[in-house]
Design a protein around this nucleic acid. Structure first.
Length: 490
RNA sequence: CGGGGUGUGGCGCAGUUGGUAGCGCAUCUGGUUUGGGACCAGAGGGUCGCUAGUUCGAGUCUAGUCACCCCGACCA
């Protein structure tokens, strides 16, 4: 392992890859476009999962599981949905291998060709709606509020650890409702859950908005999203929630009988967040010393490093620190007491910093004499010497402070990098600096496409809390009734 | 799929006009160390991505091939 991260100004992409590797989060697999999530990375993902899952349960949802394979014919039922995913599907065509009679090599048995190919799910709308058809007859069966934790496969041309991999982990919620209004409320509610999670757990401020028709999910009537701004000034879609209308119900013939005896199609939503959130977390807070984790998602919140020369000193430190460790654990703080004799303190300091541990405590002979210990916070890298008796209180205080400080810092960064543009020149010059740009747009897909072609900037969203304001489109000069949010994005 | 780049011990790299492979980190052993990634001494580890060709001789030249990375098109 080398010692330091290279500076991120030079090449953000390289810096990101290096960080992900050195912080022991993940690595590229030899399998095309896939990644191996290492234990430390997975521990963070598990904390995210748990928090999200609790929020889903609290809003009335339950978990279920559906097949990995989707018969090809299911896909063709919803026209825009196929179009959206057709180009990136992995397809199972055979079910058996055999030894080549001539060469002895393992080959695909040509006699084992499937009659109907199976698609490895890129998302589960089709198989789930095919299943819901059997679950729903009456209004009494509604709503169905189901979530699935799963892996999906999208054959992406270019991949990037966590942000875009051929296989990724996610959750996808699929709900069925009796009325349009109820489904819209559900889609908006789940967007809110995502936004709350992003801001309160990940300490990552997000903008809630809706996508333009062009950027909408394949098969959706309305796509809601949360958009975050990374440290390099690029935007990242961190979560989406879709109002699907009756598109999938019609495609899969899912009808229910109302309490008035009328037969109607069901209304649907789907919503998901993925391991991309890991990428978002990394790119929002990390610095050149490595990963920075918000306390709420840190697998280790406090690392205690004893500094000692002889075993006897270690014993003294252990005796002194054990009650503190116990007290912290009792408060629900995850803490490691690192008395590993194979590593030196300096090495441990650097390592915990690289891994993003929010608080580090060091205690040595000098502290024993003075009844003090040294507390270092990861977010600001400040070290303070505090009285041993105040340690418990200070740590608890600090965990809250760090969580809040990380959010504040990220918010300040976003605000400093969000600008209004009223002319094309202003727009393009702002784009090169990165960040969000609020600008007028005439509302047409053609203009949106042209802007994208000329500048690589996309409309990230139309913010939900947007203020109506008359203006002229920055490209076409036509009338516009509100600003929309542009950015270059991941 | 287009443009560019890289494949050499576990990781990062060097290797000149072709002459039989070296450096840093990591690893192992012993000792001294331990308050910011320790030091000294010693040791182990590579058919140079793969295949064919040129040559007395190929990490180096030629052709092919595979893989990966970066920049586009596509996307959460």
């Amino acid at each position: 392992m080398s010692n330091k991260l290279t500076t991120r100004e030079k090449d953000y992409s390289a810096w990101y890859n290096e960080l992900v590797g050195m912080a022991n989060l993940a690595e590229h697999s030899e399998v095309r476009g896939c990644m191996v999530i290492k234990p430390h990375g997975y521990a963070i993902w598990e904390k995210m999962q748990r928090a999200l899952d609790d929020m889903f349960k609290a809003t009335g949802h339950v978990n279920a599981y559906f097949p990995l394979f989707i018969p090809k014919s299911y896909f063709s039922k919803e026209a825009s949905h196929v179009q959206g995913f057709a180009k990136e599907c992995a397809v199972v065509t055979h079910y058996r291998l055999k030894n080549d009679p001539v060469t002895g090599e393992i080959i695909v048995d040509p006699d084992a060709k499937l009659e109907e190919e199976l698609i490895v799910r890129p998302t589960s709308e089709t198989i789930i709606w095919n299943t819901y058809k059997g679950w729903i007859q009456s209004y009494r069966d509604l709503p169905i509020l189901v979530n699935q934790w799963a892996n999906v496969v999208r054959w992406e041309m270019r991949t990037r650890l966590f942000l875009r991999t051929s296989e990724f982990l996610w959750q996808e919620g699929h709900t069925a409702h009796a009325t349009s209004g109820e489904a819209v409320i559900e889609a908006e509610k789940m967007l809110d859950v995502y936004a709350t999670f992003a801001e309160e757990w990940m300490a990552m401020p997000v903008i809630r908005g809706i996508k333009t028709a062009n950027e909408r999910f394949a098969g959706a009537i309305e796509t809601y999203c949360i958009e975050a701004l990374m440290q390099d000034g690029k935007a990242l879609q961190a979560g989406t929630s879709h109002f699907l209308g009756q598109n999938f119900a019609k495609a899969f013939d899912v009808k229910f009988v109302t309490n008035e005896g009328k037969e109607e199609f069901v209304w649907a939503t789907s919503w998901g967040v993925s391991t991309r959130l890991m990428g978002a977390l990394i790119m929002t807070h990390s610095d050149d010393n490595g990963l920075v984790l918000p306390p709420k998602l840190a697998p280790i919140q406090v690392a205690i490093v004893p500094i000692y020369r002889e075993d006897e000193q270690l014993e003294q430190l252990r005796a002194k620190l054990n009650p503190l460790v116990d007290a912290l654990k009792k408060q629900g703080v995850s803490v490691v007491f690192d008395d590993d004799n194979k590593r030196k303190p300096g090495w441990k300091f650097a390592e915990y910093e690289m891994r993003g541990v929010p608080i580090r405590i060091a205690m040595g002979p000098r502290d024993l004499e003075n009844n003090t210990l040294e507390i270092a916070r990861r977010d600001t890298m400040e070290k303070t010497s505090v009285s041993f008796d105040d340690a418990l209180f200070t740590v608890q205080q600090l965990l809250t402070d760090i969580q809040q400080n990380l959010f504040n810092k990220a918010l300040a960064h976003r605000e400093a990098n969000t600008h209004k543009a009223d002319t094309w020149d202003e727009f393009t010059s702002l784009l090169d600096k990165g960040g969000f740009i609020a600008a007028h747009w005439d509302g047409t897909t053609e203009t949106e496409e042209q802007i994208k072609q000329k500048t690589k900037a996309t409309i990230r969203c139309i913010p939900l809390d947007n203020i109506k304001e008359a203006g002229k489109c920055i490209l076409s000069g036509k009338d516009s009734e509100q600003r929309v949010l542009f950015a270059r994005a991941y």
